[in-house]
Nucleic acid binder design. Structure first.
Length: 789
DNA sequence: TGGGTTGGACTTTTT
DNA sequence: GTCCAACCCA
């Protein structure tokens, strides 16, 4: 792998600029330079992991501004996450100094769509109803509650028609810009024939609530552009230059949106890496990046291939793995870094041993016992898991040994119940017609207003064609409620009136108002009286919420911010190991990365493969690629022979991805606690790696005395016959691992053939006649497992 | 109405 | 094994 010769790849026209490089261009490599300086026309920046993509992107924006190609307001730069948007802003500021005004159109797809939609809200609707500029943005929770109501309204059984599933379906449609009216006939019939109808009802309902969900933000924006060419034209003309981050993650709606906006000036620069597309399950279309050159004729493709993050060993291992995928654009990552450590591979008896071992390794790093890497701080270490349930084992273990850790991901700040409750209070105060907010908090804290009371309120509201809050007032006035409920609701309505008046008073402090709302409503008291261990944390969150309010002029502005932008505060609290999912790790890097749980079924994930076949498997492989390429200096892959899943112990095979790692970049470690160790264990792993017969090798080396390993070997031998099988349970009740016709061994009866299976009981034809025995007392014939008695 | 109990689900989750 | 939601009884 030779470094690229600069002079050959920089076009002549740009060498003139190169002669007197602006300071912000210094230090860019040739490819990055090309990506920054190719300003006109469509550009696809294929940026491999760790190749300085963000730097190229931000420098490109700085360059546009420095050359006066566009004013900040004429550049559209879209990202997927608020974090990415923030980082870009910060870096542009750093490049240009304080002199340049902010970039109003640098943000997430969603936040930019909101800005556009607010200006044209009235144009979104169905003739009778249309959106108003102050529309609210519903999150997933609200969405599901709404769908549930609609399903109930059709008298459908929620068991058979789960709201979550419908939400998923609708999201999928919106991701493809399919509104109820242009939904293909076949799709309408989804959800047992009710899909199209419920979707239409849902959109109607959203409109009447003056609300949109996340998917609508994109879809409405595209519809707006398509239906109103004049509106589209003004936006097309405004955005002279368009930049898109993580293009491989765009869905159809985002793609359409970009194409529409880019039509006028055609200056669109998309940055992405097809090998890091891991959000297919959320509607992302790798096809968008693969098709870029066809979609935008005359596109120039710039490949960023010099990696500044990882060692050659890590890069080679990752490259070897991803090579197994088909239909890639193809990149060859290279680096000038020193060879470094091979990627380590280790197997463990079970998930607890795996967690224990990783804990010990981390302590060894801390104690400086891994000298080859120099000093490694806990902040430098990450554990990346496939599924969040894997985190438990590490949390338990690290808690026990007192190793500081932080879990990244998990519920976001604004998804927490207490935050959503508080927000619902604020929402109702700002917009008294927000029925969803009303429903959420009318009985939180408990006011003795249950289903019955709510129905009364709803009936009153419907009778007068008014929002629920007014319905509540009427129900109180007309005395339709009794006892405690009546008194409490009267209080609630009265309090709301005061809060609402205060919210309209520009002179009053909205922070104080927020505090008063939470106090007077009894919401704070509810948590103060709560004895559960997480109550204090929730009160802290509420404090944090109120504190965050200080940065805004009013409640209204704050509400928008929280709906779209507010991240969880990942506060720095000393040195901690990071635990997160592989998805959560995208875009991050750590000197040392542990990748546990590389077992078939878990990773690659069985469901991903079942539901999406090869496509699913390839996405899993890309996830593995993302995982390995997060490591700067050391990656440690591990797997466990047994893992507890849903309370059941399951045994599993090492991941097929392990077989795909190129051997020369892998160092196989011997797990502690395996007798003999050394050569034998290494041979067994090497055998797994090369796909050779582990059984014979292990027998030769005579090191496998541990029952778990024997079971694993037995499975390995078995896999030669029916390809691979899903992990099977090893407990007594697990007759699932046998099928009729299998040969099995029994301690007393010898070898026989299974002629029947009922639950955990097998009927086996032995030489001595047929017997009915528990599955736990036999093993597959020919395996060297110990025969149980 | 509310709280306790039971039944079913359970991969990932940028907005 | 654990979490949430629906259901049932006081």
């Amino acid at each position: 792998m030779e470094p690229i010769d600069d002079s050959d790849t920089v076009p002549l026209s740009q060498r003139a600029i190169a002669a007197r490089p602006a300071p912000y261009l210094e230090g860019l490599n040739a490819a990055q330079r090309a990506a920054v300086e190719t300003l006109e026309g469509p550009v696809l920046m294929l940026a491999g992991a760790g190749t300085g993509k963000t730097r190229a992107l931000t420098t490109r924006i700085a360059h546009l501004l420095m050359l006066n190609k566009a004013r900040p307001g004429q550049i559209l730069a879209v990202t997927f996450t608020n974090k990415a948007a923030r980082e870009m802003k910060d870096r542009i500021t750093a490049l240009l100094g304080e002199t340049v005004e902010g970039m109003p159109w640098l943000g997430t797809f969603h936040s930019i769509c909101v800005k556009i939609l607010r200006r044209h809200a009235e144009l979104i609707g169905n003739g009778e109803l249309h959106l108003k500029p102050a529309f609210t943005i519903l999150d997933t929770d609200d969405q599901i509650r709404l769908l549930k109501q609609l399903i109930q309204a059709e008298n459908l059984d929620e068991k058979r028609w789960p709201p979550r599933q419908l939400a998923h379906l609708i999201d999928g449609w919106k991701n493809r810009c399919l509104s109820p009216s242009n939904l293909p006939r076949g799709e309408k019939a989804a959800f047992d024939g009710w899909g199209g109808r419920l979707y239409a009802a849902y959109q109607e309902r959203l409109l009447s609530l003056n609300a949109v969900d996340f998917g609508d933000l994109l879809m409405h924006c595209v519809t707006l552009f398509q239906a109103h060419p004049d509106v589209l034209k003004t936006w097309q003309e405004r955005f002279r230059y368009i930049l898109v981050d993580e293009y491989q993650d765009t869905n159809v709606a985002q793609y359409m949106w970009l194409r529409l906006l880019a039509q006028a000036h055609r200056n669109i620069c998309c940055v992405g890496d097809d090998d890091q597309s891991i959000y297919g399950w959320r509607g992302a279309e790798v096809g968008n990046i693969l098709r870029f050159e066809q979609d935008f004729p005359g596109a120039q493709v710039v490949r960023l291939e010099q990696n500044y993050r990882s060692t050659p060993q890590i890069l080679s291992a990752a490259s070897g793995l991803i090579a197994a995928n088909s239909g890639r654009l193809g990149k060859t990552l290279w680096t000038e870094a020193e060879a470094g450590e091979k990627v380590r591979l280790i197997g463990h008896w079970d998930s607890e041993a795996e967690a224990r071992w990783i804990g010990e390794e981390i302590e060894a790093f801390q104690g400086g016992h891994r000298a080859s890497l120099g000093k490694v701080s806990l902040d430098d270490i990450a554990i990346l898991v496939r599924a969040s349930h894997q985190m438990r084992a590490f949390e338990d273990r690290f808690m026990t040994i007192g190793l500081p850790y932080r879990v990244i991901g998990g519920p976001r700040f604004y998804e927490r119940a207490e935050i959503r409750d508080a927000m619902a209070y604020f929402r109702l105060v700002v917009s008294p017609s927000d029925d969803l907010a009303f429903e959420r908090i009318v009985n939180t804290p408990k006011r003795g207003l249950g289903d019955k009371a709510l129905q009364t309120i709803q009936a009153a509201a419907r009778r007068h064609g008014m929002p629920l809050l007014d319905g509540a007032r009427i129900a109180v006035e007309e005395g339709q409620l009794t006892g405690k409920g009546l008194a409490n609701l009267r209080d609630f309505v009265a309090s709301h009136g005061r809060w609402h008046a205060d919210a309209l008073d520009a002179g009053a402090s909205h922070v104080e108002l927020a505090e008063r709302i939470l106090d007077e409503s009894g919401y704070t008291a509810m948590w103060q009286n709560d004895k559960s261990p997480d109550a204090p944390g929730r009160l802290d969150n509420l404090k944090e919420l109120v504190k965050a309010l200080e940065e805004f002029d009013n409640l209204q502005g704050f509400l928008e911010h929280v709906a779209l932008v507010m991240d969880r505060d990942e506060g720095e609290a000393g040195e901690e190991v990071s635990i997160m999912t592989l998805h959560g790790a995208k875009g991050l890097e750590f000197p040392v990365v542990f990748l546990p749980g590389w077992e078939d079924g878990l990773f690659p994930n069985q469901r991903a493969m079942d539901e999406n076949g090869t496509r699913g498997l390839e996405e899993e492989r890309r996830l593995a690629y993302v995982g390995i390429t997060r490591a700067e200096r050391l990656a440690v892959i591990s797997f466990a022979g047994n893992r507890r899943l849903y309370g059941q112990w399951q045994s599993s095979m090492p991941s097929r991805f392990i077989d795909e790692l190129p051997e020369e970049y892998i160092e196989v470690l011997t797990p502690p606690g395996l007798y003999g160790g050394g050569y034998g264990a290494a041979m067994a792993f090497a055998g797994a790696n090369a796909g050779t017969d582990m059984h014979d090798r292990a027998a030769q080396a005579d090191v496998y005395n541990s029952p778990g390993w024997k079971r694993m070997q037995a499975r390995a031998a078995e896999r030669k016959a029916p390809a691979r099988r899903a992990p099977v349970t090893i407990d007594a009740e697990a007759s699932a691992q046998f099928s009729v016709g299998d040969r099995v061994s029994h301690a007393k009866f010898g070898e026989g053939e299974i002629i029947g299976i009922a639950e955990d009981t097998l009927t086996v034809q032995f030489a001595a006649g047929f017997k009915t025995i528990k599955a736990a007392y036999v093993i597959p014939a020919g395996s060297d497992q110990d025969v149980p008695f």
